Every structure is written in structure tokens, then in C-alpha cells.
Simulated scan of single mutants.
Amino acid sequence: MSSLFKEIDSQASPLGEISLRRRRIPAFGDRDIYEVKLGEEFLMSSMFVDAEEALSTLGLAQVQGENLSVVVGGLGLGYTAVAALKDERITELLVVDALETVISWHQKELVPLGKILNADQRNRYVLGSFFDLATDPSTGFDPSHAGKKFDAILLDIDHSPTEFLNPSNAGFYTTDNLSLMAEQLKPNGVFAMWSQNPPEDNFIELLKTVFASVDSHLVTFDNPFQGGQSTNSVYVCVKG
């Protein structure tokens, strides 16, 4: 196999065949790009990670206090989780992912950030559906402490609030289900979410039915394929 491309692993999952690949792309120079595909769809890539990291930095910037307990919804390639752990106030980070294969890639350190996450004792992987756990506050995100409340919940699973990784996720984006998730936040806790699209007014209005304040941020990054810049967005909401 060419040194420019290698399939590291491929496994069946409840959503279909999921594969981890590594490639070199001349536009990015001497740098390995890691990609995850679900069937024929690109699920995640280390090509552009600015917005995934901004999800943590923008979200946690609005959190008050010390000794923070934080949930990351969606492990991906680990960029949101690693960025969160740079905040020294965090004492506990739960990273929730529905795909055992993705968690195992990090545990086995088949992806670069697995080593960082495994070495940080504040980090804990939780195998489960973020959306199921988010809408069941009596059980909640922590399998060791039912009903535990958190300082922040950072979500990066769906492509946007209207473009879903799995069609069943659509039901989460309602006042009722977002309110159930918000029950798992402490007073003044923060919910932040990544989207590949510019901020959507309809979603902002929906978030305002649940949260005391809602802000959206456009994250800009260089894109050599387009000869310029691209954008993603991050929504940051504070509970009353």
C-alpha cells in the first residue's frame, strides 16, 4: 500500500462499516491526516480542527468556578476533549460516544490524541448514546453517579442542527429534549455545540426557549483547497 495512504482499521458498527485511515495530502505538507469514514461518508478528519477546539475554548470561557465536571458528546478524533483538558479548572471529563470502535482506537492509541487522553487521569470514556443519556436526567451521563450535574456539556456529533449523523438524532432538537439535557447542568452551566454551517436563526430561537442566554460564533480557518478560508460555527448557551 502506498505510504501516502493506509487504512488502519475497519469494523462493523450499529451505524454501518466504520474505518480509520491515514493519508498524506501535498497541500498540507509533511503532516499525517487522519480520517474516519462511515460507509462512504466522511465522518471526521484531522484536516481542519480549529472549530472542534473552539467548541471547548468558547464554551468553557463562559463557565464560572473551579473544580469543573464537563461532558463532551462525541469523541471523534479527540480534538474537543484534548482542548477541554487544557483548562486546568477541569477535574473530571466524561467523553461520551456511541461507537465502541471509536473509543477503542483511542484506548489502543491508533490515533495521535489517544495517548494524551489516556495519560490524563481526569478523562473517562463513556460508551453510550449521548442523546439517550441527555434526555434521561434521572440516570444521566455518569454511569457511576446517577443524576449527576455538570458545569458544561460540549456537543459535536451531528453535522449541524438540521443535518444529522443518524436520522433518529433529529428528535433531540426540541424544547422538551433540550430542557431534559439542561436539567443535567448546574445553575449557570453551559451548553455548547459545533456545527459545520453558519449560525441558523431558527435554531438560535429554539435554544432561547431553554437557555437564559444564547450566543453564536463563526470560526474561520484556512482552507488550502479553496485558496482561502472556510467557516464553522459554535453555539454557546448559559443556563439560568
Results as ranks from 00 to 15, higher is better:
155 L>V: 13
128 G>K: 01
49 V>Y: 06
119 A>S: 14
64 Q>R: 02
155 L>Q: 01
188 N>T: 13
228 G>H: 01
225 F>D: 15
136 D>Y: 04
68 L>P: 15
111 V>S: 14
105 W>A: 04
39 G>K: 03
119 A>G: 14
70 V>D: 09
7 E>H: 00
220 T>I: 10
118 N>D: 10
36 V>F: 02
140 G>L: 01
77 L>W: 02
132 D>V: 02
24 R>L: 11
79 Y>V: 09
121 Q>I: 08
73 G>Y: 00
217 H>M: 09
39 G>F: 02
144 S>K: 10
176 D>F: 08
78 G>H: 02
135 T>G: 13
45 S>G: 12
142 D>S: 10
135 T>N: 13
154 L>E: 09
71 V>C: 03
221 F>R: 06
14 P>Y: 00
120 D>G: 04
47 M>P: 06
21 R>A: 15
105 W>S: 10
159 H>C: 08
140 G>Q: 02
26 P>F: 08
80 T>I: 08
44 M>V: 14
231 T>K: 05
65 G>N: 13
146 A>C: 11
228 G>A: 09
65 G>W: 08
23 R>G: 06
141 F>G: 12
36 V>R: 04
191 F>D: 15
236 V>S: 07
18 I>Q: 14
84 A>K: 01
121 Q>R: 07
137 P>I: 11
148 K>R: 07
201 D>G: 01
114 G>D: 13
168 S>T: 10
30 D>T: 05
54 A>F: 06
157 I>T: 06
48 F>S: 14
140 G>H: 01
194 W>G: 10
74 G>M: 03
15 L>E: 12
206 L>P: 15
196 Q>F: 02
174 T>I: 07
88 E>T: 12
216 S>H: 12
2 S>R: 04
90 I>H: 02
38 L>C: 13
199 P>S: 13
131 F>N: 14
89 R>T: 13
27 A>Y: 10
28 F>T: 08
81 A>K: 00
149 K>V: 10
154 L>M: 09
116 I>C: 00
87 D>G: 00
187 P>R: 03
76 G>H: 04
36 V>D: 14
142 D>T: 12
36 V>L: 13
72 V>Y: 01
137 P>Y: 03
196 Q>G: 10
194 W>D: 13
52 E>G: 08
170 A>C: 12
38 L>E: 13
181 M>Y: 04
53 E>K: 06
205 E>D: 12
52 E>M: 00
83 A>M: 03
213 S>M: 05
21 R>G: 12
198 P>L: 04
136 D>S: 13
164 F>I: 08
147 G>A: 00
130 F>T: 11
53 E>S: 06
108 K>Y: 01
212 A>E: 09
153 I>E: 10
113 L>C: 08
221 F>E: 15
54 A>R: 07
31 R>L: 13
239 K>Q: 12
154 L>Q: 08
52 E>H: 03
166 N>D: 15
145 H>W: 01
80 T>N: 03
143 P>Y: 04
230 S>R: 00
30 D>M: 06
192 A>F: 07
234 V>N: 05
128 G>M: 04
129 S>W: 02
135 T>I: 10
